[in-house]
Design a protein around this nucleic acid. Sequence first.
RNA 1: GGGCGCUUAGCUCAGUUGGUUAGAGCGCCUGCCUUACAAGCAGGAGGUCCGCGGUUCGAGCCCGCGAGCGCCCACCA
Length: 887
Amino acid sequence: MNPDQIPKSYDAPATEERWYRFWEERKFFAASDGSSAPRFCIVMPPPNITGSLHMGHALTNTLQDIVVRWKRMQGFNTLWVPGTDHAGIGTQNVIERQLAKKKIHRNDLGREKFEQIVWEWKEQAEKTIHHQLRRMGFSCDWSRVAFTMSPQLSRAVREVFVTLYEEGWIYRGEYMVNWCPRCTTAISDLEAQHHPEQGHLYYVRYPLQNSGDSVTVATTRPETMLGDTAVAVHPDDDRYRNLVGKILILPLLNREIPIISDSIVQKDFGTGALKITPAHDPNDYQAGLRHQLPLVQVIDESGKMTAQAGPYSGLSREQARQKVLHDLKEQGFLIKTEPYSLSVARCQRCNTVVEPLVSTQWFVKIAPLAEPAIAALETGRIRFIPANYERVYFEWMRNIHDWCISRQLWWGHRIPAWYCEACGRMLVSRTDPERCPHCGEAELRQDPDVLDTWFSSALWPFSTLGWPEKTRDLELFYPNSVMMTGFDIIFFWVARMIMMGIHFMGEVPFGTVFLNGLVRNEQKQKMSKSKENAVDPLEIIDQYGTDAVRFTLAVMTGAGSDIIFSTDRMIGYRSFANKIWNAVRFLLLNLPEDASPVSADEARELASGRSLSTVNRWILHRLNAIVAEVNEDLGKFRFDESSNALYHFFWHELCDWYLELSKPVLNLKSGEDHEQTIKTMIYVLDVSLRALHPFMPFITEDLWQRLPHQGESITVAPYPMPDAGLTNPEADREMNQIIDFVTSVRAVRSENNLDPARKLPVELVVASQQRHQLQRYQPAILALGRLSEIRLVEAFHEDGNHLRGFSAMGEFALVAETEVDRQSELERLKREVAKIREEMERQTRKLSNEDFLRKAPQPVIDLTRGKQAELAAKLEKLSAELTRLGG
RNA sequence: GGGCGCUUAGCUCAGUUGGUUAGAGCGCCUGCCUUACAAGCAGGAGGUCCGCGGUUCGAGCCCGCGAGCGCCCACCA
């Protein structure tokens, strides 16, 4: 082949552009539901439609794609549904931020106009997703990108809501919920993130009515005192026993509040007296219910003080705190202030401090739904990888609280409940009602709230397959084969999918849950947009190529551990891509015009025939071992092991040894060995490319198409499977000896700084059997050791310029033309002797231990004995050499 | 307050049921433009496997205690 036809190095962008177009046009990735093949399905978690794809998504989705490509090549009928669920707060925030740039608030637009804007924006977002999926090399069915707000998925959401409502699992009620004053919506417990922050503990004196006495309470949130409706003390607290039932005067507002007795108070915290603010603290709310205390709401939905806060009305929470403190101090009620570390809840989406507020919300009574979901893991119908996350799951599921599903947002699935203006009754319905079924009036007002994003996400494994219709997809691909996602959303998503799946499908949504770690940056920090340390995967792809990025992600995905994003590794695997490119290039430059593909059967025939050289037998043996390992590791989701095995094999066995050993054969240009070596090489590279394809889709396709191959695309070519007919331990042993010999020669040469460009003769003293082998491999050894000739001798010339070396094949001497640095060679030998002595010592100690001889298994003892003998022999030779050099 | 995890080479990490001299990539040092690849090739240095104790013929791995770090959950003012 003309060398100009294949460039000297891998050009990722050109290759990528060519092949994703090709795949897209051929529609290789569409599921063919007519086939009787075994099925494999992954429903993909959402790529981030709200902005650029982030590294976490890139990781999860890459791992999924590796598995899907692997399964597809194995002949599975695969379906991979990509999609996005952005029916909620995240999306609304993105849109609001965009509007804010134009100085528009959503209130200026009104709900309908706002929704319209999101729909327009969604068109663009879908294009973005499509682009991202392509760049990452994902083999999903492009035509099936699922979008939660689509009419079909909306229908599924409504169906689930109404069914759960009818079954009594959904209820509406007034409770204290986490409220984000910036998003002006309720959020679930999970969305409120607690972090320790440095604050203060304020001691405030509340005077007793008609008395000079007072009670001092400690609080971290002085502004909430405006809403206090009691002060509580512990029933067993002697200090306050006779004060229970007395009345206190709330400072600043001069309201009368009672002293009550309740065991939620901890006697030894603060002063032992606790102010009770039922409207602004979950514990106090409960206490308020127990003691029938009034609710005094002093903070409103947007975090401003209400009219109830008297003179503080209209101030923000923060301003009110300052003013309250100022006033308390001025009027002598603030006793002292201590620094105090407290846990502050912030909104997951916008980081605003969450305000507990009482409001009417929709809830899912979730404990009963959780039970079968717990059982699914207990009985092993669902299995987590790594398994230790099962414990986390159990812990949460067994202590699960009712799930607040309503959100006061403008974007999302609207709750299908209507209120009749005429009779005031509520109606929950699958279809938009025309009129009230109770009184017949048409004046119906739909509940303004929307559902939590995760409510619709929970339906993903079946809603994306067409449910509630009984579709063919659903029949074929439910339950999904495997769920792959980050461990950080076990509760948000995985647990809820399991509950909903079991409840509505009567069957678990997937059998295996694979959880990958987080992607961190080189300082080990979590990558996040708010910290501005996030890396855009598409930019990294521009820099290193998709194949290198995918391979890096795979190789760094250890079992259950986070991955540290490293540019160095990326560079290394970009080099690997180049290595692959050049290995194939090497073959192409040596390929006869009429070369044809080599099938697995042909390869087996070659391997079982008599004439195939040991080198070729050896590489087929190694190839087969790697294929077996990769399949096994991928089955266990060991992406690191499988990719590493391929990397090591390709670079350090195939390229470093096999191709080098084959060069002398290829130079022959003809003959049986030449012909068979070409065939072997075609086969080995073909199999290697197919084995690598799930990890590096682009380069493998490109090279595979250039090699003799069978089939339209490597994407639909069979994945290599182990074949016992290729194993050959004999060839493996023999080659290892040659490799060891060449390595020893090189080491001696290198350690003595002998210029490799200068060809040196080597003399060998060897046993007869090895002599035969050495003759056979002479050309390869000459080439790899950069030697001019090999002389097989019975005994060495006693020449001072001979450098002795040892390998399993025998003792050898390099004949140097110049004076050898005797001193440094002596030192080197001495160092080596010391090392061997030490090692021998260890073996001897073992063998002189009677317990070891009595209790250790025989193979271990034999191994130790053999090793000791080997070391002894080597020591003897080294000592002789030392003597010879006059040491 | 509960739970989970981590600590191995300068850096990032493997090390599967305990058994050869604890490995890899990057980095470092030395020598090479050898007609696939300098994004390359060959060779080399570098480790008290966090500490202490225990089990065992034998421990990086199992058990106990301790130290440091990280994460998750939980309503403690």
